[in-house]
Amino acid sequence: MDSVRFGLSIRALRRRLRWTQDTLAHRARVSQSLIARVELGGADRVTPAVLRRICDAHGARLTIRVDWHGEALDRLLDADHASLVERVVRELQANGWRCLVEVTFAIGRERGSIDVLALHEATGTLLVVEVKSVIPDIQATLAALDRKVRLGPAIARDRGWRSERVATILVAAEGRTNRRRVQAVGATFATHLPARSAEARTFVEQPSGTIHGLWFLPISTQTTGRHRVGRSHAPSPA
């Protein structure tokens, strides 16, 4: 948690409500000196239960999140993600694509990983695939995908792949929740990822030109007959 930002947020909310620190302290059942300490960036020395009471007093919600290596922790917690990646790789390999999974990169100050990076050598098409079993944050997902597409050619060159064009597909697990989330921001998806599942499948089978699309796929439950795929990591600095 960013204690400084937390303190600034609490102060901004308190001032918006035109409360004094004493008023907030009374509502949160804490001392005025503790409120002052939190607003000055000392939230890291206060228990989560007390911080939650301070947030509750404003009608705000306290969220505590563990981050580790970007999106890597989410993948560890999400077995469905691995199954969906496996399904994507099978689809691509069956149609002549070379695939690498969990491709980590470090280009300047840009760091991260690509779920599936695929190359169709016959057409020189590079495909960046982002896989989501659940779409948690639409804007963050699209921003991350745009960044990976921008860096894709350089990442491919580092691995000896030559490409003439870059395509991108966001693969989401088939389900009502994901479809509702996409539908709720349909105009945004129409701008960033205008192609849909049928077009994405056609492109994978017969790549022509480029595509920016959204493909809903059911999560595979198969555990046998797995394809061997490469895992790629950022090259060590020379």
Rank of each mutant, 00 (worst) to 15 (best):
R176A: 00
R231D: 03
H212K: 11
G213V: 01
V129Y: 09
D78Y: 04
L8M: 11
I107L: 15
S133D: 01
S9H: 06
L77M: 03
V46I: 15
I219P: 03
W68H: 13
R226S: 13
E102L: 04
V129C: 13
L214W: 04
L73H: 06
L92M: 09
A198E: 14
R5C: 03
R147Q: 13
A187I: 06
H212G: 11
D80N: 02
S163D: 08
G230R: 14
R61Q: 11
L117M: 14
V182S: 02
A190N: 12
R90Y: 03
H58K: 05
P194V: 04
R53Q: 12
H81K: 01
E199I: 01
D80V: 00
G96T: 09
E86Q: 12
S9C: 07
R165S: 14
V88W: 03
E164N: 11
E110Q: 15
V149N: 01
L217Y: 08
D67L: 13
L40A: 15
R45I: 06
V103L: 03
V204P: 05
W161R: 12
D22L: 12
P235G: 04
R179A: 13
R165G: 06
T104G: 13
A172N: 05
R90E: 14
S236C: 09
A118W: 02
A79F: 08
G209E: 08
R150E: 14
G70C: 01
A154H: 10
D158S: 12
V46C: 05
L119Q: 12
E39K: 02
H212C: 12
A12W: 03
T224W: 07
L34Q: 00
A172V: 15
R29Y: 05
I169V: 13
R18S: 14
L117N: 08
R90I: 03
L76D: 07
G96V: 10
A195D: 13
D137V: 10
H81W: 09
S113G: 06
G209Q: 09
V182R: 01
R165N: 08
A94D: 14
L62K: 04
Q21W: 02
T168H: 06
V129W: 10
C99K: 05
T188Q: 11
R18C: 07
E205P: 02
V166I: 14
I155Q: 00
C55Q: 02
